[in-house]
Amino acid sequence: MPDLSAELIIDLHDRRLLELRWPQPATHEIEQLPEPWCWIERNHRYNSLLWAAEDQARREDVPDGEIVRRKREIDRYNQQRNDAVEHIDEHVLNSLATVERLPQARRHSETAGAMIDRLSILALKIHHMRLQTLRLEAGAEHVARCAVKLTVLQEQRADLGGSLDGLLADAAAGRAYFKVYRQFKMYNDPQLNPALYGATHGGASARLAS
């Protein structure tokens, strides 16, 4: 899959985080990207929005209603992030549809989309940890501690990127395969979450036991 590599994905992640308005919507940019890149970008956007909402949800100087609003944002962004992962996997698997799987091919439990999602999160961690190394007012000890963590995060991203490239190469050669693993987030579905459709916890437990 010459059009998809960890290097290009990491470059996209890092470039977006340096954009002034990111992660605010820029639909013209999303629409111009071909699949699966449009979904890789959307996944990264939702992770970035999720990161910001998680930060805000931990504030103690705002009304409780603001925390509730942030919690609902978190649920929405997390659902959209997972939906994007599934779209990435669907595209990758479609592109591999004609590959003949070797008899000894191994099943990879983690999908390419899930690995790309992890690369997005690592990009966010690296970006924000790097900012911490620039906080001179926080003191030399803080800066040094964050610099060590930044090095570890960069190594972890390099390792994960190498593993992603290895999976894509093996899948293209028929040596490995994976499936789309559906998340089926039940807490966001008013027909599946007992707290939303009105069932009591006792009733749910009784159904499970029957």
Rank of each mutant, 00 (worst) to 15 (best):
A26G: 03
A176F: 12
Q183P: 00
I40A: 09
A97L: 13
N47I: 03
N78S: 15
V180L: 09
P190D: 09
D165P: 05
L167C: 05
D61V: 11
Y181M: 06
G202F: 00
E110S: 08
Q104N: 06
D14A: 04
H142W: 08
D170K: 08
H13K: 07
W39I: 01
R76F: 04
D189I: 00
K185N: 14
W39M: 14
H13L: 14
P34K: 02
R118E: 15
L49V: 14
L167W: 11
I67H: 08
R145T: 14
A173S: 14
P190H: 10
S48F: 02
A112D: 11
V62A: 15
N78H: 13
A52Y: 03
T151G: 10
E7D: 13
L96Y: 07
A123N: 11
L192S: 05
Q132F: 06
F178T: 00
A171W: 01
L102P: 04
D11Y: 02
V180A: 06
L208M: 02
A53T: 15
S205H: 08
D64H: 15
R70H: 05
L208S: 03
H201N: 10
R15W: 11
L167R: 02
H91R: 01
N82R: 02
L50K: 05
M186I: 06
Q154G: 06
V62D: 15
A84I: 10
R106D: 06
V143A: 12
A138L: 04
D61T: 01
L136E: 08
H127S: 03
A140F: 04
T133L: 12
T111Q: 06
A171C: 09
A209R: 13
A84G: 04
E73H: 15
A105D: 09
T27F: 11
G202P: 01
Q80H: 07
Q79N: 12
K125Q: 11
C38T: 10
M115H: 00
Q154R: 02
A209M: 08
S109F: 03
M1G: 08
N78E: 14
R118Q: 15
A173D: 12
S5C: 02
E66K: 04
I9W: 06
D61F: 12
N78A: 13
A147R: 07
V62H: 12
Y197Q: 07
W22F: 11
A144N: 05
Y77A: 12
M115R: 08
N82Q: 15
P63F: 07
T27M: 06
